[in-house]
């Protein structure tokens, strides 16, 4: 089989792994305290002691990017994984049991697609957010709500095409229960598109966090987040572009890596019956 994932796939995976490890072990890695303001370094560009430079009040941008990765990665992974499980189940159920179940589920999911994400988010923050420190749960909750419908639709489409195949009928002829059919016959055929699409959703959530931060509604300071850093650096764009640029570049590369990994996986798992 001449199929390979390719060098750039592994490069992207390596980058994501390094980022994740750095975020997790940020406390114990020899990097600077993200809250420390270094005297006389305000708006200084990248240097040997401060790799990504310093921000408006002299904090080290590099260590803030690392700590910001905690928020971005947690929000996007937890959000995606929850949405993947819920959306995946809903999609499979909806695609497998046609008829009334499918109609109601599809209608509900389509209705949820109509809600503008930012409005939903603002509403949730207004109604639920008694304390700022709970913001991260609201973020995750909103992101899950937003990602369920797209994932469920993709999974439903994949399930529909596979539920009509004879091997599903064959499993039922053998006396398999619906659960067994879904998990043994349908899931293996749906999983590749599910996983690769989830990675793309994950990348999307990182960007959405940035957008939310622009409204000042992301995880509140002093916790650094990428979106918040880009937003704060905006006022200094003319004199110290790196304050916004560095987190933006890291966010860009991360999103690119996630999308790339998702795309490559999708191609890799392309059903091979097409060859016949």
């Amino acid at each position: 089989m001449g199929r390979r994932l390719g060098f750039f796939f592994w490069l992207a995976v390596a980058y994501l792994a390094v980022l994740a490890v750095a975020a997790v072990f940020a406390d114990v890695l020899p990097i600077k305290d993200p809250a420390d303001t270094f005297a006389g370094t305000s708006k200084q560009g990248p240097s040997l002691s401060h790799w990504f430079g310093n921000d408006g009040v002299g904090r080290d941008v590099f260590s803030r990017v690392i700590y910001g990765a905690q928020v971005s990665l947690v929000i996007s992974t937890v959000g995606t994984v929850l949405a993947l499980v819920i959306g995946g189940l809903l999609g499979m159920v909806s695609g497998y049991y046609s008829g009334r179940v499918d109609r109601w589920l599809t209608a509900t999911l389509n209705a949820s697609l109509v809600i503008p994400p930012l409005i939903l988010f603002l509403a949730l923050v207004l109604f639920l957010d008694s304390e700022a420190k709970r913001r991260i749960f609201i973020l995750v909750f909103t992101f899950v709500l937003l990602s369920i419908a797209p994932i469920a639709r993709v999974v439903r489409a994949a399930t529909l095409s596979c539920a009509n195949q004879d091997y599903v009928l064959a499993a039922r002829t053998l006396g398999a229960r619906d659960g067994r059919v879904l998990f043994r016959e349908v899931l293996p055929n749906v999983a590749p598109s599910l996983v690769s699409y989830s990675l793309i959703i994950m990348a999307g959530l990182i960007v959405v966090e940035g957008a939310v931060a622009f409204l000042g509604l992301s995880v509140p300071p002093p916790t650094p987040t990428w979106g918040d850093m880009i937003n704060k650096g905006r006022t200094n764009l003319d004199v110290a572009a790196h304050i916004s640029l560095m987190p933006a570049i890291v966010m860009f590369v991360t999103v690119l890596a996630l999308n790339f990994v998702g795309d490559r996986l999708q191609q890799y798992f392309e059903p091979r019956e097409a060859v016949l």
């Binding site: 004879d166 091997y167 009928l169 293996p188 091979r272 019956e273």
Partner: peptide, 13 residues
């Protein structure tokens, strides 16, 4: 038991 018309699609790839 049953044997199907399309042998490929009756076996999970």
């Amino acid at each position: 038991q049953m044997i199907y018309q399309d042998p490929i699609s009756s076996l999970n790839p």
